[in-house]
Computed example of a mutant assay.
Amino acid sequence: MELNAHIDHTLLKSTATEKEIIKLCNEAITYNFHSVCVNSCYIPIAKQVLKETPVGICTVVGFPLGAMSTQAKIYEAKQAIENGATEIDMVMNIGFLKSRNYVAVLKDINDVKSAIGAIPLKVILEISELSKNEIVRACEICIDAKADFVKTSTGFSGSGATLTAVKIMKKTVKGQAKIKASGGIRSYASALKYFEAGVDRIGTSASVAMMNNQNLKVAN
């Protein structure tokens, strides 16, 4: 498969500089990645570098905790789109989920999705903080809210993506939403395993290393 076309080339650390974002965007052009994933303050720079290329701009909303108000998430998402974002990765309100306030979780996601319309919405579950049953419930809520993707992790909490969680997510969504895996996926071999498990997109900061080593045997 053309792995590069399914990668969100990611740089979300708080210390990321303008120079590093420009480098990230140029790498995405060189390797034909699906998108770059950057914090929203860097969308204008990414838009300038990526103009007249097919590379998209993904940004995060409610990141990394997901605990801000729905109104704040909506404003952040709409502002990001106005500035040039083509996809939104939103963090679910994990505290509401653990409180079993499923109506509030649903409303949070649904309201953001309604506000951004046709722009793809990926909902980050933060699987390291959830039990198996909570992962299932979170995925069910995302489907009800018409999210386009369910995403494993922010990469800023716990262990990141796991194949076990992806398999649970895949079984739950039953093709009604796509799956993005992120957090700790740093080799071509591991990326392939996630795609074999059913993910549609991978978010990683190790994208270039993956592409440069894609001809190595998976067993290595």
Score class of each variant (00 low, 15 high):
residue 44 P to V: 02
residue 45 I to C: 07
residue 45 I to S: 07
residue 46 A to H: 06
residue 47 K to H: 09
residue 48 Q to Y: 12
residue 48 Q to I: 09
residue 49 V to C: 02
residue 49 V to N: 02
residue 50 L to D: 06
residue 52 E to M: 08
residue 52 E to Q: 14
residue 52 E to G: 03
residue 53 T to R: 03
residue 53 T to E: 02
residue 54 P to K: 12
residue 54 P to F: 03
residue 54 P to H: 10
residue 55 V to L: 03
residue 56 G to V: 08
residue 56 G to I: 09
residue 58 C to N: 15
residue 59 T to W: 06
residue 61 V to K: 06
residue 63 F to I: 08
residue 64 P to S: 09
residue 65 L to H: 15
residue 66 G to D: 00
residue 67 A to C: 10
residue 67 A to Q: 10
residue 67 A to N: 13
residue 67 A to E: 12
residue 68 M to V: 14
residue 68 M to D: 12
residue 68 M to P: 01
residue 69 S to A: 12
residue 70 T to I: 05
residue 71 Q to K: 13
residue 74 I to S: 06
residue 75 Y to V: 11
residue 78 K to R: 13
residue 79 Q to T: 14
residue 80 A to Q: 08
residue 81 I to H: 08
residue 81 I to V: 13
residue 82 E to N: 14
residue 82 E to L: 13
residue 84 G to E: 10
residue 85 A to V: 10
residue 86 T to R: 10
residue 87 E to L: 06
residue 87 E to G: 08
residue 87 E to F: 04
residue 88 I to M: 11
residue 88 I to T: 11
residue 88 I to S: 09
residue 89 D to L: 07
residue 90 M to F: 03
residue 91 V to T: 04
residue 91 V to K: 01
residue 93 N to A: 03
residue 94 I to Y: 02
residue 95 G to L: 00
residue 97 L to N: 02
residue 97 L to V: 00
residue 98 K to W: 00
residue 99 S to D: 13
residue 99 S to H: 03
residue 100 R to E: 15
residue 101 N to G: 01
residue 102 Y to F: 15
residue 102 Y to D: 08
residue 104 A to F: 04
residue 108 D to L: 01
residue 108 D to S: 02
residue 109 I to L: 09
residue 110 N to F: 12
residue 111 D to S: 15
residue 112 V to C: 05
residue 113 K to P: 06
residue 115 A to R: 09
residue 115 A to Y: 08
residue 116 I to Q: 07
residue 116 I to D: 06
residue 117 G to L: 03
residue 120 P to N: 11
residue 122 K to G: 08
residue 122 K to R: 09
residue 123 V to C: 11
residue 123 V to Q: 09
residue 125 L to R: 01
residue 126 E to S: 00
residue 126 E to V: 01
residue 128 S to M: 01
residue 128 S to K: 03
residue 129 E to L: 15
residue 130 L to F: 00
residue 132 K to T: 14
residue 134 E to T: 06
residue 134 E to H: 04
residue 135 I to L: 06
residue 136 V to M: 05
residue 137 R to V: 12
residue 137 R to E: 14
residue 139 C to G: 07
residue 141 I to F: 04
residue 142 C to N: 10
residue 143 I to R: 11
residue 143 I to N: 09
residue 144 D to L: 14
residue 145 A to G: 04
residue 147 A to S: 11
residue 149 F to P: 08
residue 149 F to A: 05
residue 150 V to W: 02
residue 150 V to Q: 07
residue 151 K to N: 01
residue 152 T to D: 00
residue 154 T to R: 00
residue 155 G to P: 02
residue 156 F to C: 10
residue 159 S to M: 12
